[in-house]
Amino acid sequence: MAESTQLKSEVLLEQMKLHLATDAGKKLTKEIGHVYQLNIAPTKIGFDEVIFVVDLKKGEVKKGPYEDGKPDVIFSFKDEDFIKIATGKMNPQIAFMRGAMKLKGSISAAQKFTPDIFPKPAKM
């Protein structure tokens, strides 16, 4: 943790990294089998985006753009909104409707992008 201001999403995605190694995570990989690229912006979509790749083909989470071809879907959202979606606070469809989430790519792949693919953080 080099910098003190860090995206919440990164914390969650780090957890996701571990999660994908578990049985539940492996099952996810098998069920979904898509590659999602997440462009996460701290405050405004399109600005200072940090790119993550959630590769549910290989079962990996990586920082940086996808390099092995084209991701199935590229999502863009604000840090906050991604957390809301991943923790079920916001429905992806609603997020989409309000422009809180933008996507490029396969719609059917995007439909599988639901809160249940993300591990829920436990609270201390």
């Binding site: 469809q93 989409f96 409707m97 933008k102 719609i107 995007a110």
Partner: peptide, 15 residues
């Protein structure tokens, strides 16, 4: 256009 449309499409295409 992509963005405008993106906003629109999710509503129906996701449902």
């Amino acid at each position: 256009w992509v963005e405008e449309f993106g906003n629109q499409v999710g509503k129906g295409a996701l449902g």
